[in-house]
Design a binder for these strands. Structure first.
Lengths: 230, 230
DNA sequence: GGCTAGGGGATTGTGGAACAATCCGACAAG
DNA sequence: CTTGTCGGATTGTTCCACAATCCCCTAGCC
């Protein structure tokens, strides 16, 4: 049944052209996660439709996609708004993050070797960005690092779930003034975590991961309530 | 800040009137999870729009909602189809289930008491349905039981994630001929698990849960490949 | 003065029709 | 048997119309 075309079949996803709704959703997602659309902004169907040159129907389909990624909230008869994260949301996100990343750590022994390589690769991207003082890129690499940790579980659904969580977290990052103060303290701890994983110390890695996420949550919540928190 | 209206606020979701798209999605979801729409069925926009008396616009919005719950798959220019679960999907679902339910067990000490009560309540619903030989209801209660276990974590996102997973699992259940053979062996193990939780034996509960899910996955995969496997 | 009630304007929710884009199956040609 | 091509059918997208709903503002009342 399976033949020499398996390598091609793996790239099948790249072949699927994106519909207009999907492309619109991607554009909006980028604008939101990069902070160009402030949380709370109302996304008017008419204004956006004109700006992006798509019809209201298509735009509404894009809104559905974004709503399921939790980047916007849809209020009946009022419209869609860029999601406003409150400290409770951040705590909730970190609860789920802990569950998913822990699952990755625990699956370490049965994980494919390239999965572990992805963890190291993300860490190195973060380090080289740090050398260039590019703290936004450090933040991106940090998210990729943790996605790779969860990815050790080798589950499509976990990967997708983490990707959504990370996009949502960017909303919180955008609200924090100093990207450096947010990421620098955790870079070294990423290195520690990667080391524990590569030497197979699962239990220690799990303990470190738990503390790590607890601390990170506290930092973000403090930054949110300190600055523009409601 | 919080006052005497908390109980009312909890019912807020029931108050939000549902748009037509949402109602259509619910109808379709019920038909799919109860097996009345066989996996692989193509959902024609024209035929369904006429049957449900809604426009194509509304129907397409409903399809987006279902696609994000993974109950249907949307293929560009080909339409939407009722999801066909393969054994790989089932394994993937159980990987994520293990992560979420484990998170619930581990949060047992800090869980609100009503969360643990929900676990017991679901178990009792399963037992009374068993006494009536109503194995479909037993299956529903079984899903609720495990949702309640994950719910111990007290995370909105985990709850929502589990709810989606359970709906997807029903697709697999629908493909298994004997509901009794599927659920009966696991009823007693649910009782064991609930006992461990109520007596606070977290580590033992986690071990039992891991074995439980591993066995359940194996049973379903065997049933799928044995009967109507692709 | 502050609160309630109601009206006007704007926006969303839904339906419907039209056309373009795409896919699939059938048939023909090599 | 494979490859090219055509035609029907379905989806993708746009545009328009109208009802439903919400928000703000004003008027009136206590």
């Amino acid at each position: 049944m399976t033949g020499v075309f398996d390598a091609l079949a793996a790239d099948r996803s790249r072949l699927e052209r994106a519909g207009a709704a999907q492309r619109v959703a991607e554009v909006l997602r980028d604008h939101i996660t990069e902070g160009r659309l402030a949380p709370g902004t109302r996304l008017s169907e008419e204004a956006l439709g004109e700006a992006l040159a798509v019809s209201r129907n298509t735009l509404r389909e894009a809104f559905r996609l974004l709503a399921d990624q939790r980047l916007v909230v849809h209020e009946l008869n009022r419209g869609v708004f860029v999601k406003v994260l409150n400290p409770g949301d951040v705590a909730d996100i970190y609860t789920l993050r802990l569950a998913l990343e822990t699952a990755g750590v625990r699956a370490l022994r049965s994980a494919a070797s390239e999965r572990l390589a992805a963890v190291r690769a993300a860490l190195e991207r973060a380090e080289s960005a740090e050398a260039l003082d590019d703290w936004v890129t450090v933040g991106t690499a940090d998210l990729h690092f943790h996605q790779a940790v969860a990815g050790l579980a080798g589950s499509e659904r976990i990967d997708e779930c983490m990707a959504g969580l990370m996009a949502e977290l960017r909303l919180a990052f955008a609200a924090v003034p100093s990207a450096r103060g947010l990421h620098e303290p955790f870079l070294r701890r990423n290195q520690v975590l990667a080391g524990l994983l590569e030497s197979g110390e699962i239990d220690d890695a799990e303990v470190e991961l738990t503390r790590y996420l607890d601390d990170a949550r506290a930092v973000i919540v403090r930054a949110m309530t300190g600055a523009g928190g409601q």
